[in-house]
């Protein structure tokens, strides 16, 4: 199985997935892409903030945060437990 496909915002703490698509409007998409949210990149959910929003992620070896509503624009697959 190629693993489940879901939105990044649905992933839980401690899970890793692979980005398949970044949605959203033009400038937001470009910005994310430029920061390394490229199709095929592995992304790890480090933690949710105490108020459940934003999310701390690890991508290409660095930590970055995104709001939940923004993470809902990113589709991931192959979601599994643990760090890449």
């Amino acid at each position: 199985m190629k693993g489940q496909r879901m939105y990044l915002s649905e992933m839980e703490e401690g899970q890793t997935g692979v980005i398949t698509r970044v949605g959203g409007d033009g400038s937001f998409r470009r910005r994310l892409l430029e920061m390394g949210f490229i199709k095929g990149s592995e992304i790890y959910v480090e933690k949710y903030a105490p108020l459940k929003d934003p999310i701390e992620l690890v991508i290409k070896g660095y930590h970055v945060s995104l709001r939940v509503e923004e993470a809902a624009q990113i589709t991931v697959e192959n979601v599994r437990e643990g760090k890449a």
Binding site: D25, F28, R31, L32, H63, R67
Partner: peptide, 12 residues
Amino acid sequence: GDTAPFVMELPP
């Protein structure tokens, strides 16, 4: 207008 997206690096 759009609120800036919260794409913020958390540096070490």
